[in-house]
Design a protein around this nucleic acid. Structure first.
Length: 886
RNA sequence: UGGCUCGUAGCUCAGUUGGUUAGAGCGCUACCUUGACAUGGUAGAGGUCGCCGGUUCGAAUCCAGUCGAGCCAACCA
């Protein structure tokens, strides 16, 4: 094998004076962003035959605020994508915007101070300014200005208007932080392609009978008046109270139940107790009579009842909680739905078939007091009524209990019976878990969160939402001769028709004039849960049935990066969908990033006011420095926000820039690497490269960064660079001087190249900048080069790493002595006497001249000592030359 | 109540399958302007690895327990 060929190009025409004196991040960032866009550096090559690496990027909810957490997780994904690109993969890295859904509507409502009212007529060209530009939130509140009602169409227009603006902000941030996204693959979950694919998904699931329409008790958010899914619930610990209410027993006797929801007394449909509870055993099978309303209610036994809790006997209402639903189903109880969709108690009449009463007049009088009130108001009034009647046995006992809220909702969820579309998932929990286990989780333990959630799933996925800004459910219903709706036979569009909006498009065989008419049709007004669309992000990217060739190429995708709080939604639904549609997993790997906590280790949240906005830190430290902070965190581990780490990242970028400039400042021609120290350095570097690749391959890029940084600092800038300075710089004339100089120049440049490439996924700006000074000879961006690999080093003769270790140990010993003597490191040494193990001395010999040069040492004497540890050099005596300064 | 994660220097964190004297950076202290970098360099102080047992020649690492922090879920009458 020939090691002698010098393949290294001469650094030509490099005018150091033309290079920037210092690294101006903002300038470099904006210059390189332009360059990358112009040169399409990160473009996915549709017809390329290279292996693909597809990233299932999380489409951010654009209605949310920008915070450092975004940068953190997206940068981690970008680092991985950049590494894969540098492995020669054809990287498919799109960016989507999750712009529809409740969070957006909520934001739009506040931003413009509007609400959607389907009964309001459309006003063409309506373009409202943000309310907050003319009035503060406080003024709005004080003046009690009502929200303006907009037609559905106007409302949706305003949603689009705002999300477009929000997306610009996100796009700016993603560009600034240097995400290597292919912007030609940008999409939104509300755009035409996404609507098409979401509706395709519906048709497929419908055909497979996994998508069903059911009228059943469903989780209901009374604020936004829509159904919700189990995944969107969250527990909140709130104060409540037990109320002891006395019921009469038909045929004599009384008992007392305890409830936290006395307002549901009119909705009471049963009484239950544990079958073995001696206190109440005799009541089972009898009927109770409710106070205030005189309704006859069956008493039944249930093993589920905990005799320890409350009074051991309780009322079953439609519906207080999930257990009520269970009892209602099992016991085939009546359905007394007293809470309306708006969260207020709806009109009912006692004395009717559903609400029989022993004293209907009195019952109605009581109910009149609470009718139309909110749950909270009704509770207060009901307690007063019960106290007045004497049925309230004790004063309310305050407790603190967990209550389910719709995510970000203001009022607890209610359960009410409505007609909704569901995806059947509860019956395939096992299978979903199995599919989830086929995906490689990083870190592995995150799989247990997925498993845990799936095992506990108890309600099918309700995907219909009674909202406006979302993907339409592609269904029409026929009206009969009387104009009544027949929900049992929905009419579906064909695949070719998609996307459809059933509120404006007609089903086949009908005309628009038949909408709402007898024997005509109506369109489904509901839209999909946003997760219904975003659980298809891999298919949105691959185009699924719309582009089978691309789908084959990139599905399943390679990796899904996401954070852990949406394992139960995004990861779960995506896995379930891929399974239902194609019996496949959606991606081979899933990488879970941790959270960014505030410096006190509290979760950052808007309400706590501890949210840190990212752009200020990009400005202060530079994008590379912020990326360094994100890149240093291990996956799945929550990280306290710490600008101190960014400072260190900035330092690394600076050092890279300066060291780069220094290495390139030597315009000598590189020659064959012959010197033992140079070869030893390359040997060490080679090992380090091997480690970095290993870390990346095992999804631990933080490890790669940390070790490479350490090596760069301790083995390159602080040592190798110093050791070869005297050999490489300054006047050289003899053939031998020129030869050893050329050897070092080659090693230096090769080393620099390697470091730049190794850091490129982490510090894309700095590395590209320095790269462009000298190495862009093939017109390629550093980000299109191959990541360093061990094989590259085969052009060099094997080196002896011990030479390098001995050299830096000696360098360090002499420097230490100078520090102890409180003299300058630059102070010449006329004579030094060192003691060391003979083996160490032997290792050092080939590099002795370099060490002498770096320490300005004229003469070295040795005391070989077999008892000394290897690689330990200690100064016995030292004589300094004159202080050059003086 | 169950599941998962974490507990290492003042701070932020490494520590790979158990193996010499437990590492890095920041911060702190002292010194040095040395040919790119003072946005730098050289050194120093600082830890009984949460606690208690066990396995082992040997434990920060493995096992059982315990305390503390966090997350997820169950219960929520």
């Amino acid at each position: 094998m020939s090691h002698s060929t010098n393949t290294f190009q001469k650094v030509q025409g490099l005018d150091l004076n033309a290079l920037p004196k210092s690294l101006e991040f903002a300038q470099v960032e904006s210059k390189l962003q332009g360059k990358w866009t112009e040169e399409k550096t990160y473009q996915y090559q549709e017809h390329d035959t290279r292996p693909v690496f597809a990233v299932d990027t999380p489409p951010p909810t654009v209605s949310g605020s920008l915070h450092v957490g975004h940068i953190f997780s997206y940068t981690q994904a970008d680092i991985l994508a950049r590494y894969q690109r540098m492995k020669g993969k054809n990287v498919f890295y799109p960016m989507g915007w999750d712009d529809n859904g409740l969070p957006t509507e909520r934001r739009v409502q506040n931003f413009f101070h509007i609400r959607c009212d389907a009964s309001v007529p459309y006003e063409a060209g309506l373009d409202l300014p943000p309310i907050l530009s003319t009035m503060t939130e406080k003024e709005l509140e004080a003046k009690k200005i009502p929200q303006r009602s907009l037609s559905r169409k106007n409302f949706i227009e305003h949603c689009h208007k705002l999300t477009v603006e929000d997306e610009k902000l996100f796009k700016k941030l993603w560009s600034d932080i240097g995400l290597s996204v292919d912007w030609s693959l940008e999409y939104a979950t509300i755009d035409e392609n996404s609507r098409k694919i979401a509706q395709l998904s519906f048709l497929d699931l419908f055909a497979k009978r996994e998508m069903v329409q059911v009228e059943a008790p469903t989780l209901w958010d009374t604020d936004f008046q829509t159904a919700g899914a189990q995944a969107e619930l969250e527990d909140r610990e709130i104060p409540g109270a037990f109320h002891d209410i006395e019921f009469q027993v038909e045929g004599g006797g009384t008992f007392t139940i305890a409830t936290t929801r006395p307002e549901l007394l009119p909705a009471c449909v049963g009484i239950t107790t544990h079958p073995d509870d001696a206190r109440y055993k005799s009541l089972i099978g009898k009927f109770a009579v409710s106070p205030l309303f005189g309704v006859r209610i069956p008493i039944f036994a249930s093993e589920v009842v905990n005799p320890e809790k409350g009074t051991g006997i309780l009322m079953v209402c439609t519906f207080g909680d999930q257990t009520d639903v269970q009892w209602w189903r099992e016991q085939k109880l009546n359905l007394r739905q007293i809470i309306g969709r708006d969260g207020r108690l709806q009109p009912i009449t006692f004395g009717s078939e559903l609400y029989p009463s022993s004293d209907a007049a009195l019952a109605n009088e009581h109910y009149q007091k609470v009718q139309g009130k909110t749950v909270k108001q009704a509770q207060k009034l009901m307690v007063e009524l019960l106290q007045a009647s004497g049925a309230m046995k004790n004063p309310p006992k305050p407790i603190s209990h967990a209550v389910k809220y719709y995510e970000k909702g203001d009022r607890p969820v209610e359960i009410m019976t409505t007609r909704q579309w569901f995806v059947k998932l509860v019956d395939k929990k096992e299978k979903i878990i199995e599919y989830g286990s086929q995906v490689k989780w990083h870190p592995e333990f995150m799989y247990s969160r997925f498993k845990n959630w799936t095992e506990n799933l108890s309600i099918d996925w309700c995907v219909s939402r009674q909202r406006f800004f979302g993907v339409s459910i592609p269904v029409w219903y026929a009206l009969d001769a009387n104009g009544a709706v027949d929900f049992s036979k929905p009419m579906l569009p064909s695949k070719e028709q998609l996307p459809v909006d059933p509120m404006s498009d007609c089903p086949k065989g009908f005309t628009e004039s038949q909408r709402g008419q007898a024997n005509g049709f109506i369109g489904e007004a509901d839209v999909f849960d946003t997760w219904f669309t975003s659980s298809l992000t891999p298919q949105l990217g691959s185009q699924w049935e719309l582009n089978p060739e691309r789908h084959r190429k990139i599905f399943p995708m390679d990796i899904r990066p996401q954070s852990h709080e949406i394992i139960r939604t995004w990861a779960f639904y995506t896995i379930a969908k891929a399974m239902l549609h194609e019996e496949k997993i959606p991606w081979k790997h899933i990488m879970i990033s941790g959270w960014v906590l505030d410096p006190d280790r509290k979760k950052m949240s808007k309400s706590k006011g501890n949210v840190v906005t990212p752009s200020q830190f990009i400005e202060e430290f530079g994008a590379d420095a912020v990326r360094y902070w994100a890149g240093l965190a291990r996956y799945g581990v929550d990280t306290a926000f710490d600008p101190g780490i960014m400072k260190i990242g900035r330092r690394l970028a600076m050092k890279l820039f300066n060291a780069g400039k220094f290495v390139l400042s030597n315009s000598a021609e590189a020659g064959e690497v012959t010197e033992p120290l140079d070869l030893a350095f390359l040997e060490k570097l080679k090992a380090q490269v091997g480690e970095a690749v290993k870390s990346f391959e095992s999804y631990e890029p933080a490890q790669a960064l940390m070790e490479m940084e350490k090596f760069f600092w301790s083995h390159f800038t602080d040592s190798y660079l110093e050791l070869v300075k005297s050999r490489t710089w300054g006047e050289k004339t003899t053939a031998d001087e020129l030869r050893v100089k050329a050897s070092a120049v080659h090693a230096l440049r090769f080393g620099l190249k390697t470091f730049l490439k190794a850091f490129a996924p982490f510090l894309p700006y700095t590395t590209e900048e320095v790269w462009s000074y000298a190495f862009q000879t093939e017109g390629k961006s550093i980000h299109q080069c191959l990541y360093p690999n061990v094989a590259e080093f085969e052009v060099f003769k094997p080196g002896d790493a011990l030479v390098f270790d001995a050299a830096i140990a000696t360098l360090s010993a002499i420097n230490q002595q100078k520090t102890l003597s409180k003299v300058s490191i630059a102070r010449p040494v006329t004579l030094i006497r060192l003691k060391a193990n003979p083996k160490s001395i032997e290792s050092l010999m080939p590099a002795l001249k370099d060490v002498q040069g770096a320490t300005k040492t004229e003469k070295v004497e040795w005391e070989p000592l077999g008892s000394m540890a290897l690689n330990e050099f200690s100064v016995v005596a030292i004589e300094y030359g004159p202080d050059q300064k003086a």
